[in-house]
Every structure is written in structure tokens, then in C-alpha cells.
Design a protein around this nucleic acid. Structure first.
Length: 465
RNA sequence: GGCGGGUUGGCGGAGAGGUUACGCAGCGGAUUGCAAAUCCGUGAAGACCGGUUCGAUUCCGGUACCCGCCUCCA
């Protein structure tokens, strides 16, 4: 069996992956807070862990992996949006989840096996909170329940911090009722206008971190294999999850392997609203960048390095995918994979290396274009699909856009006439007009292919006929 | 201030202690009525300073710069 190696944030080392139960490999990914469209940065963990999911299913078996990704649907940002719009919270979260599914589907990301909503697990969160109080790891004060970080000696281990150092950093908001400035909220009171649930500590709502502890336990158990998310979640979110889960279930391991993807940048800078380079996945899709192109751009950079989104990369990825789609046309996915691709992905998800392998396979196919190569083409296709590329139904963008078949037919006719008469003036004039209208022309012996470029102008095209 | 990550050719971006990464662009060629597309070939690198070594871009230490987290924006 292929040995998968993953860089475990907890140990800061690349380790051989050994599942607790090979018949049921369990993975949890921190999902979105559902109050608005997913921005481009949200897509990175989704794509990274989708590749890992495909690899795990390949190595351990289709039915031997359980993948959970939560929806945080109780949050003060959601409350604020409900208050601002007057809409019920459930309307907002339902709508946002629908958007999220549509956008992530467009990136070719498989839906997780379970997508728990925090609001469906309030009872489990209350139970865990009560358990932490009973075990002396949490305390109730002024309607809040707080986790006592001094009760957990390993607090800070995941992120390499010590409680004392962080306090010395003096950037911690100190609420007067906290025993220690680093103590964090498990449960907080809600006023009459804020969503809340009854609990032993009065009507209130959970703190952010407890949901992942409660839901991972409910769906994957006290101990599971992989826990993932963006590196920004390492502290405090994941640190707090570990504290909660390990103190509630001290006999268990909680998550054995912690995987964190590095952050996204845009044109070399942090994506932020103030810099004006903030955009959502939907913005890109609606702007004509296909989801498959977005995915390929992401895969070009290793997940543990900062990734820069640039328009240049998107152009390059689109050209590559056009070539690959053409090469794989008519190929059959028989599930036979290139061993090199599997080995590269198994080595801590070396997607960039895997892509270079696909390039090499594509070159071989192109060199042997005169032969049939159906076996090689099938391997190429199956291997690309391990990366979530060239998936069935993902090639719609290739033929999307305006119908240019009439212009293509006219171009063929003019070319035939020109070749017969040796007078190319009319043909060249038509080609120039098409180019001016933003149409990309590709001609070869067999026919012509027309595609709209980013500067496509429908009005100019219409004027030609 | 504390913690963590990064720095490779014009651009993007990997692996490996010593032998071509790869892709894009460029250049040369094939093909084409001309182009485009496609195919073939090709030059170009390892932030800086030390150390280990027969040999380092690859290991170790330091410096500079960039980025992230510590502010419930992935």
C-alpha cells in the first residue's frame, strides 16, 4: 500500500500516516461561518482537503473515509446581519449554505459525508460544557462559562506558545471576570433580542470553539485521524478545541494529525477590503473564470506555502486546461492511475509536483498524437481526476459563451473559396473583423475553432452578419 | 513585544548533498496562403554572511526583507 506522509503541525514534522481504523479514516475540516459569500481565501482549505480526500479514498478505499466539514451558523456576525436586515437568522444561514454549496461545487470539491450545523448540536455543546465544569476545567461567572487555561498544562502546545508569553505580549483583551486573561468563552448569555438556548447557566449561546469539539466527537468519536483548517485557525481556535476535547475526554487522543494550509494573497498582497482586492469565489465565477481554472491555480502552489492569486496565473491555468481537455477527449476513466502522481501526492500533497507529472504525460501523448494511445489517455484522465481536474461535467466552460458556429462555418467557406481562387482578401478581412470583435481564431487542416476572448464584444460581432 | 512561515532563472513553482525539474514568456525550427493554435529544440536560478563537507541552492547558525497569527475576517 502507498504510504501517505503528512506534515503534522502538532509535531512540526512530516510523518507517515497510520489511520486509527483503516476501514474508517476520519477527517474533520473547519468550515465557514455562514453569513456571506465565501471569499477566495475560503476556497483554499476546501480544495486542499478535497485533494487529500481523493488520495485517502484511493489508498484506503472508496467507502473507508469519513469526511466532516461543519457550518458555523451561530455567530455574532450572523446576529448582526439579522439585526441589520430584519431577516430571520435561519433564512440568512440557509441562503448562505446554498451559495457555499454552489460555489464549492463549481470548484470540483466533493461534498463531505457530513456537514453538521452548529445549531443542531447545541445539546452536545451544553453537555460538554457541563462536563468541563464538573472536571474542574471550566467555571461559571456572571452568566458566562469560561475555560480555565491554567487547568490544562498543554495549552499552547499546538501553536508553540506559552500562556505566560502571550500575557507578556499584552495584546490580550482582559475581561474583569476572567481568572486568567487567556481564559476563553464556552457559553455566554444572550439578551432578549439575541438568539439563545436554555442551559444550566441561563439562556445563552455557545462560544465559537466548542462547536467543533462537540460535533467532531458526535460524528467521528473522541479520537480521529485528521483535523484541518487554515493556519490562522491554529491559534486560538484549534488550541481551544484541543483544550476542550482533551480535558473532556482525557483518555482519548482527539485529533492525531493537524494539517494547516497557508494563507492566500492577491497580486502579492493580503486580500482585504481596504486594499480593494477583496473578492469572492462567486465574483470570479461570474467574471468568467471557470471553477476548474481556480482549482488549478490553487494546486500550483504547495498547501503549506503562501499562495498568490494573480490574473496571469489564471490565464496560464486556463490555457493548460484547454490543452488537457483536448488531449483527454474521448478517453475512458478506468481508474488506472499513474504511480508517479500517487507517490507525489502521498508525499505531503505535492500537487505542484503532480501537475508537472501531468505535463510530462501530456507531452508524451502529444508526441504520439498519430497513434491511438487510448490506454495512456485513460491513465492521464484518471490521474488528473485524482487532483479533481477534468472531472465529469466540469468541462462546460470550454463550450460556454456565445454561439459562434455560424461565423465558424462562414470562415471555413471563405477559406475554401480563397484557396481555390488564391485571393485571400475577403478571408483576411473577415478574420480581422472577428479578432477585432474579441474572437480567438484557431484554424487547422480539419476545421476552425472560435472562442470568445476576455475582450469579446457581442455588438461588433453582430455587426458582421 | 511573543509565536510561526517564507525568500529559487523574466514570471510562476518543485524535488534532490554531487547528474535536465516542470509550466508560462523569450529565442530558433517544423507546420500554415499569412497568422493563431499545435509540435520539436534552447539560453537562464537559488536573498545576504558564515559553518559542516571532497562538494550545498539542498544540512546548521546568523543577518536582511516579506507574510501570517496573537484583535472570535480561512
Amino acid at each position: 500500500m502507498v504510504e501517505i506522509k503528512l506534515t503534522n503541525t502538532r509535531t512540526r514534522r512530516k510523518e507517515a500516516f497510520a489511520p486509527i481504523d483503516p476501514a474508517n479514516v476520519r477527517m474533520y475540516l473547519c468550515g465557514p461561518t455562514v453569513y456571506d459569500r465565501a471569499h477566495l481565501g475560503n476556497a483554499r482549505p476546501v480544495i486542499v482537503f478535497d485533494v487529500l480526500l481523493r488520495l485517502l479514498r484511493h489508498v484506503h478505499g472508496e467507502g473507508c473515509v469519513t469526511y466532516v466539514r461543519n457550518f458555523t451558523d451561530v455567530d455574532d456576525k450572523i446576529n448582526a446581519r439579522a439585526a441589520a436586515t430584519g431577516r430571520p437568522i435561519r433564512d440568512i444561514t440557509d441562503e448562505t449554505i446554498g451559495w457555499y454549496h454552489a460555489d464549492m461545487d463549481a470548484l470540483g470539491a466533493a461534498r463531505p459525508d457530513h456537514e453538521p450545523r452548529a445549531t443542531d448540536y447545541i445539546a452536545q455543546m451544553v453537555d460538554m460544557t457541563g462536563e468541563l465544569i464538573a472536571k474542574g476545567h471550566a467555571y461559571e461567572t456572571e452568566g458566562h462559562v469560561l475555560f480555565d487555561v491554567r487547568s490544562f498544562p498543554d495549552y499552547g502546545k499546538l501553536s508553540g506558545r506559552s500562556v505566560d508569553d502571550m500575557i507578556a505580549g499584552a495584546r490580550v483583551e482582559v475581561a474583569p471576570f476572567k481568572r486568567d486573561p487567556m481564559d476563553f468563552v464556552l457559553w455566554k448569555p444572550s439578551d432578549a433580542d439575541t438568539s439563545g438556548w436554555d442551559s444550566p447557566w441561563g439562556r445563552g449561546r455557545p462560544g465559537w470553539h466548542i462547536e467543533c469539539s462537540a460535533m467532531s466527537k458526535a460524528l467521528l468519536g473522541d479520537s480521529f485521524d485528521i483535523h484541518g483548517g487554515g493556519i490562522d485557525l491554529q491559534f486560538p481556535h484549534h488550541e481551544n478545541e484541543i483544550a476542550q476535547s482533551c480535558c473532556a475526554s482525557p483518555q482519548a487522543d482527539f485529533a492525531r494529525v493537524w494539517l494547516h494550509n497557508e494563507m492566500l494573497q492577491v497580486e502579492g498582497r493580503k486580500m482585504s477590503k481596504s486594499l480593494g482586492n477583496f473578492f469572492t469565489v462567486r465574483d470570479l465565477l461570474d467574471g468568467g473564470t471557470p471553477g476548474e481554472v481556480i482549482r488549478l491555480v490553487f494546486l500550483m502552489t504547495h498547501y503549506r506555502k503562501p499562495m498568490d492569486w494573480t490574473a496571469d496565473k489564471a490565464r496560464e491555468a486556463e490555457a493548460t486546461l484547454r490543452k488537457w481537455h483536448a488531449l483527454a477527449a474521448g478517453a475512458q476513466d478506468r481508474g488506472h492511475l499513474d504511480a508517479g502522481i500517487v507517490d507525489l501526492l502521498a508525499d505531503d500533497l505535492n500537487t505542484a509536483g503532480a501537475l508537472s507529472r501531468l505535463h510530462a504525460m501530456a507531452r508524451d501523448l502529444a508526441e504520439n498524437a498519430t497513434r491511438d494511445c487510448h490506454v495512456e489517455k485513460g491513465i492521464f484522465l484518471s490521474s488528473a481526476r485524482l487532483l479533481g481536474l477534468l472531472l465529469p461535467g466540469m468541462d462546460g466552460w470550454l463550450s460556454a459563451g456565445p454561439d459562434l458556429s455560424a461565423q465558424a462555418a462562414r470562415l471555413v467557406r471563405l477559406r475554401d473559396e480563397a484557396k481555390a481562387s488564391r485571393d485571400f482578401a475577403a478571408l483576411d478581412a473577415f478574420k480581422a473583423a472577428l479578432t477585432d470583435a474579441g474572437v480567438i481564431i484557431r484554424m487547422n487542416r480539419d476545421g476552425v475553432e472560435l472562442d470568445p476572448s476576455p475582450s469579446f464584444d457581442a455588438a461588433k460581432l453582430a455587426a458582421l452578419s
